[in-house]
Write a protein that binds this DNA or RNA. Structure first.
Lengths: 341, 341
DNA sequence: CAGCTTGAAGTTACCGATAACGCTAAAGTG
DNA sequence: CACTTTAGCGTTATCGGTAACTTCAAGCTG
């Protein structure tokens, strides 16, 4: 690999002069600059970012840690993050935690070791607190995205889960639903908690009874949905609609119902958060509180970089992005007489 | 930041001993090892990967450069790549080229500067040759994925585009279609060329006439599809089916047809490559030659790492992954009398 | 013309790790 | 007992840069 010393020797200048040319610092005569530039091209020189990082104590790398990049919400978020990072001259390191604390911890270790300038991450759960504290201990700036963690004071970009849930429930109630179940994530995840809060508030606001039996805390795998549906169908009175915790849960529920010959929205309406993309091809198109995924990533990275570069106010900033109610075809008026076969 | 010297001082040993403990090299007495380990924990020491990279001339970072991570094919590919990289102890740097040579070139520059150990990339087009040669010049191993570039001899993981196109056309012909158009990428992209080859071969094999007027080379934006549809509808005889170059083009075509009140598959059948995910919700579900996206990424990274670590045979390896014909609802028998309004 | 300023470089000391080499003391060998 | 091994660890150079300081010559001033 060719180094600044090779360039220096070839151009009959010192290494420092080469460094000055590269970084446009100090004063250099046009003649010297031209000569150095010429030699650099001739030798196909490319600066070594690692060496620079070592001395500058800055890598210009930020890390994005999501639960799963194949979830369309995070895919789009990642795209927004990458675009923003690139626009600011940063590189993006990607990781998937799969909602797994162990995996998340391993990534944090890697992140610390890599000395990235900052981290944008979706905490796996409230128990991610330990990892976030590790980041704090090491002075690595980070922005929590989508979810936040009680007891951790930090920059955050989150959605309006409570408001979204209320809008969705209101919509169902307006359609005539009176028995609405919630199948969401476990309450050690902030979004799941808040969506539950919104669900509960909306029921109250609409004069409906809140009943714990109609609330399911579950994982995001198909198996989890299968189990939830099993128990859900045994409920009395039978729910006519479900608020799903996220897009994947909505999908799992739908599949499970289909397998059992229960139609959506005919026999069971489903509402949820976010979308699965390709709005005009999905059928049924979920009625959803859609969050601006791209902006989550874009804004998250922007806030992170402001923090990194000391351009942010000292106090942590918390940005709540609004969601939009999209009426899809996964909801309809409840059927008067419904039989689960 | 705490360094091995801090550890060394605190533990009353030399820095080298600390290094030996970290890397499990050389001989260390159990007592010393324990003492060093203890101090490391106490001081929350995390090794500096940059410093290590500099001396070892190895970053343990690989770069993934795709055209657009939000294309579901690349999303899944990226997931496969990240999993494989992680499994081998590598970090993954992500980039989107947007099929843009300038952007691609900028990324390659960044990649070279970062001294990543290797690159997995989808070349924007045949003109990416210049960038790939730059990689070669600098001795950075890379694996071309999905597309390859004439004149560049390198490891590659590609799909069976010719075979896929033939399967798709055969399917259309079996349904009774006789006038089939091709709306694909421009021929400076290998997959577009090969899909065209398969299209042509399949027409011949089925005794159908190949006519250049029915072949459209175009970009991947909605606007491009709109234009293609415009011209396509003016053709005589009128096509009853289209082979789309990829999933996004199929989507664009479908949208354009819908806007014009032309139904798929009723009035126009569409076949394509890859999918848009969520197979059971997409309607119409495209009849497609689906490629194993996850494996593309997984295998690509594995080949890359074998190359990086010198475990690969000297000659470049080219792996062709098979696709699978998925019969969807975007195809049906052609309507006898069709009128484009 | 001495003395000062200033532009344009060069020198030196790190940044945080690892490898090669070398040293010392204890254990083994004949 | 003299001599070789070997376990265990330290010293030093190095990776490719950059910051801070120094040097040197030319130009300007009074």
């Amino acid at each position: 690999m060719v180094t600044i010393y090779d360039i220096a020797k070839q151009a009959n200048v010192s290494a420092m002069t080469v460094s000055r040319v590269i970084n446009n610092t100090g004063r250099i005569s046009d003649k010297t600059r031209a000569k150095v530039r010429h030699v650099m091209e001739e030798l196909n020189y490319v600066p070594n970012a690692m060496a620079r990082s070592l001395v500058l104590q800055k890598t210009n790398i930020v890390s994005l840690l999501v639960t799963d990049i194949t979830n369309p919400f995070y895919t789009t978020l990642a795209r927004g993050a990458e675009d923003a990072a690139r626009a600011h001259g940063y590189k993006l390191l990607l990781g998937n935690s799969d909602e797994d604390l162990i995996k998340e911890k391993e990534y944090i270790e890697t992140i610390l070791s890599t000395r990235v300038d900052g981290v944008l991450l979706t905490p796996a759960s409230d128990y991610s607190k330990e990892q976030l504290e590790a980041l704090k201990r090491h002075g690595t700036p980070f922005v929590a995205i989508d979810r936040d963690v009680p007891g951790i004071v930090c920059d955050a970009v989150v959605g309006d889960s409570v408001g979204g849930a209320r809008k969705l429930i209101d919509h169902l109630v307006q359609l005539g639903h009176r028995v609405i179940a919630l199948v969401g994530g476990t309450f050690d995840v902030s979004t799941a908690r808040e969506r539950h809060d919104g669900y509960r508030e909306a029921l109250a606001a609409n004069g409906l009874l809140y009943d714990e039996r109609f609330v399911f805390q579950t994982g995001y795998r198909l198996h989890d949905m299968e189990q939830a549906v099993e128990r859900l169908l045994a409920l009395e009175p039978a729910p006519t609609a479900i608020l799903a915790g996220n897009n994947l849960q909505a999908l799992g529920l739908l599949q499970s119902f289909r397998r059992r010959g229960i139609e959506t929205p005919g026999q069971m309406s489903i509402v949820t958060f976010d979308s699965l993309g390709y709005r005009d091809l999905i059928d049924p198109l979920f009625t959803t509180a859609e969050q601006p995924a791209y902006q989550f990533g874009e804004l998250g990275i922007t806030m992170l970089i402001e923090r990194i570069e000391g351009r942010a106010e000292i106090q942590p900033r918390r940005k709540v992005l609004p969601n939009e109610l999209i009426i899809g075809s996964s909801t309809s008026e409840p059927t008067a007489a419904r039989t689960h076969n």
